[in-house]
Design a protein around this nucleic acid. Sequence first.
DNA 1: TATTGTTATACTCTATAACTATA
DNA 2: TATAGTTATAGAGTATAACAATA
Lengths: 175, 175
Amino acid sequence: MTDTTGPPTPTPLGERPSFLLAQLGLHAVTRFAERLAPLGLHPRHFVLLAHLAGGDGQTQQQLADTMGIHRNVMVGLVDDLEDRGLVQRRRHPADRRAHALHLTEAARDLLAQAQHAADEYDAELLATLDETDQARLITLLQRVAAHARLPVGVHPNLGQRPCDVAPDAARPAAV
Amino acid sequence: MTDTTGPPTPTPLGERPSFLLAQLGLHAVTRFAERLAPLGLHPRHFVLLAHLAGGDGQTQQQLADTMGIHRNVMVGLVDDLEDRGLVQRRRHPADRRAHALHLTEAARDLLAQAQHAADEYDAELLATLDETDQARLITLLQRVAAHARLPVGVHPNLGQRPCDVAPDAARPAAV
DNA sequence: TATTGTTATACTCTATAACTATA
DNA sequence: TATAGTTATAGAGTATAACAATA
């Protein structure tokens, strides 16, 4: 059968996994950005700090590859964080072209607060599910992500415009 | 306890539901846009056509509210589809300021193809899960979306730049 | 010749505000 | 006065290409 007339009842958007994921993904990143804004951090800054905390001294290019963004964008992100005294560009011991990025103590304090805010938001996002279903959902999402060959912990477009993080604005607690 | 030092082991990004949703959401909308591109449709066009198929004769403002976008953006979307002969702007029977939007037969044909492409993509996206887990994931996502008070079938930022849909390009099949 | 960091440019998308014609 | 549609404008974000320093 060449079914060119289409199915009698098309799948509603609210039942499409792709649509649900797109809708929830945008919502999650927007709300998470709102939670991070009081700390003066953009979601991308959070991801950058988190990745850097996993290994000090990485180059900008390495971090850009890890985060799935272009090195040009990385320049601006590091500029922001350096202006705020959260990261330092030091001489790379082995390559004089590259910068070795290092977190400051203030950054580790602020990152801990950001992780706490993220934990709170994640809990609230899934608050309607019991613990079993929460774990089930996370596992299912991880399986789908793995099947799509998405790198673990990498997300290039984390929140473009939910908040504007001026280097000299809104940092009530740390720094 | 004022836990300002943070937890000893921060939650990895790959275990955060907010991060997984953001990552998968962007991935889904990007890949879906690629599937739709051969039809000359942007995801937003697809959503517009799908909503309009549910009720012909709506005004641009009504559709914009339904889709969660501004009426200014709706103008451009309707322009695209009208240029391609997929929708018609007719006189509204009750309000001479408004346009009554109507789908053409070509649009219904193309929409059926797009729905088919969406079904195919959704199936592939979840191909790694058996039927039980697929249904479970969709239900869990719907519950989380409902808890977040997300309107059913509404997603404003559906794919900004994965493909550029020129009104006079790339329409192999219909129209 | 290739690569790191940087800067400049153009392009896209969005948000805001205006304008008109109707209500 | 408020609303539907339209247009224009400015802003943010991105991508591409170049450049200097170094490998």
